[in-house]
């Protein structure tokens, strides 16, 4: 019953976003600002975790695949595909669900409990459209590029770890990277990221937008935003993988 209520209200919320906007130019400006905020603002953390993810992946693959039957450059293949298919799109997006999601939920939640959203409504502005739509569009546009960067960085991290530890030298690593590369993987990852971006922003915005009460509830909304976007990301990850990869 409770879940149904949320699903229903979420759908109404989504529909409300697409009422005719007041002034298109204002939206463009908002989208630009949000792209900087969401994309550039998340660059540091995304790059940082990607380096370590790539490094760990390489070392673990070596650890798991030691066998005379497996050529050493296979390590690079494993690292590359794992980073592109799963680690960059999914794990980075999970981290972003924490960073971007909680910030959206608490921003909107605070605006709700301090009546700023009411103030928008009073002016005759479609508050959800004005506040939320630019965030969703911005995230869906910018996150694929961010993830593309993290792919490079992640693979770079793997290469670095391989070289530093001496487990796989640069030459072998390069050979692995170039062998049997399927560009569809990048397309697949981008589709995932666009979906995840939509989930993170819309679910968090929904949670924030319908906050009731005070500062305590803002905190709770922000927690729920992170939990629900993470769960939905992993669920969607499974669905998309089954649909698009087999």
């Amino acid at each position: 019953m409770h879940t149904l209520f949320h699903i229903g209200r979420y759908c109404i919320f989504m529909k409300g976003l697409f009422l005719k906007p007041e002034k298109i130019s204002v939206y463009y400006k908002q989208i630009k600002l949000e792209m900087i905020d969401i994309g550039y603002g998340s660059l540091g953390i995304s790059v940082l975790i990607s380096v370590f993810m790539g490094a760990v992946l390489t070392i673990q693959s070596v650890h798991n695949l030691v066998s005379p039957l497996v050529p050493i450059y296979a390590i690079a293949i494993v690292t590359r595909d794992a980073v592109i298919l799963e680690f960059s799109p999914t794990v980075v997006c999970l981290v972003l669900a924490g960073k971007v999601g909680s910030s959206i939920a608490s921003q909107l939640g605070t605006m709700r409990v301090t009546e700023q959203i009411d103030a928008l409504e009073i002016m005759g502005i479609n508050s959800s459209g004005y506040l939320v739509l630019p965030k969703i569009i911005a995230a869906m546009l910018i996150l694929p590029f961010l993830i593309l960067i993290t792919m490079f960085v992640g693979i770079g991290g793997g290469w670095m770890a391989g070289s530093i530890t001496g487990l796989i030298n640069s030459h072998e690593f390069r050979r692995g990277l170039l062998s049997g590369f399927d560009t569809y993987n990048i397309t697949f990852a981008s589709i995932k990221v666009v979906m995840f971006a939509f989930i993170i922003t819309s679910v968090s915005a929904y949670q924030g937008f319908y906050t009731e009460g005070g500062a305590l509830e803002v905190g709770q909304s922000s927690t729920r935003a992170v939990v629900w976007s993470s769960v939905l990301i992993l669920f969607m990850d499974y669905v998309l993988t089954q649909l698009l990869l087999i």
Partner: peptide, 23 residues
């Protein structure tokens, strides 16, 4: 409905109990 109300809303000014300025 929302659209018709919009005309009236643009004729309304409101001062909220807590100010409700955009932070």
């Amino acid at each position: 409905d929302f659209k018709e109300r919009k005309h009236i809303r643009q004729e309304i000014g409101m001062v909220f109990q807590g100010g409700a300025l955009f932070d």
